[in-house]
Design a protein around this nucleic acid. Structure first.
Lengths: 140, 140
DNA sequence: TATTTACCTACTGTGTCAATAGGTATTTTA
DNA sequence: TAAAATACCTATTGACACAGTAGGTAAATA
């Protein structure tokens, strides 16, 4: 399961993308709009800043803003930053001591295929892809 | 991440498939071949029996055996039994009180697509698909 | 100087993971 | 009938992550 950290991070990024060009957005506003505890969001946003996804400005008039354009973020990099990895099994982690069973493991090829698939899925999706209005209906 | 329960369960099922037609296979043998604590495997195998995947016979000469043919199990049903669900987010669970944000949630469609993809991946794979010899090399 | 904001450290309760421990019930075989 | 081998059962444990909460400090603006 994707943790709340990953899911909330995505919602913060979407929120900031929706308010692009409005300068610094205070976390308080995001927390209210998204209905998530501001205190908890602090932890998440801190990691996003540290990971180079966001820019934070202290002081009055401060807040957060996107560093890149929404189409220059992939969902994959955001999730991977928050979740640590997207790998489904430890054997696939970079630098993992390769399992002694790796050469004969009958499941490893499946995990590799799986990892490739989900990696492709999330890295093929841009933040901007999530902004699309969902078939809006205009009443006349 | 797929837990050890899911991964070990798959290895137990593979082991039993490899010894199909040999009657009851004692857990002790499986534990030794797979190099997994027998005590821990007991927990896993118990769930497999309860879930209708295996047949267990007590007493001397007892052990475990597959109920169906290896091509009549999907990897998906084995993993889902052990992991509880394959859903990436709680909002997608059957019977989940639908999130109040569901109607306007910008991420939900992505999670649905993702769930559909991984569900298809694992339910499209049969236990027998994992048995294949991996390009064996015959030395002359 | 007051206000608003980000940023920082620490703490906590709950639950799951990955086992381990020690038994009982069941069945076959000698 | 006794011994052996097996499945099956309940309980416990240590470590860790999850999902927050609490209370502060630093920085920038009006």
């Amino acid at each position: 399961m994707i943790s709340t950290k990953g899911r909330y991070a995505l919602r913060v990024m979407i929120d900031l993308a929706q308010h692009e060009g409005e300068g610094n957005i205070p976390l308080k506003d995001i927390a209210e709009r998204q209905d998530i505890s501001k205190k908890y969001l602090e932890i998440i946003v801190k990691e996003l800043v540290k990971g180079g996804m966001l820019h934070g400005v202290s002081g009055k008039g401060g807040g957060y803003s996107l560093i890149r354009k929404p189409d220059e973020y992939t969902v994959g990099e955001i999730l991977e930053l928050m979740e640590g990895t997207l790998a489904p099994v430890a054997c696939l982690l970079e630098g993992a001591d390769s399992c002694p069973r790796a050469d004969t493991c009958l499941t490893l090829p499946m995990w590799k295929d799986y990892y490739e698939m989900i990696h492709g899925f999330f890295y093929g999706k841009k933040l901007s892809d999530l902004l699309g209005s969902r078939d809006p209906v205009y009443y006349i």
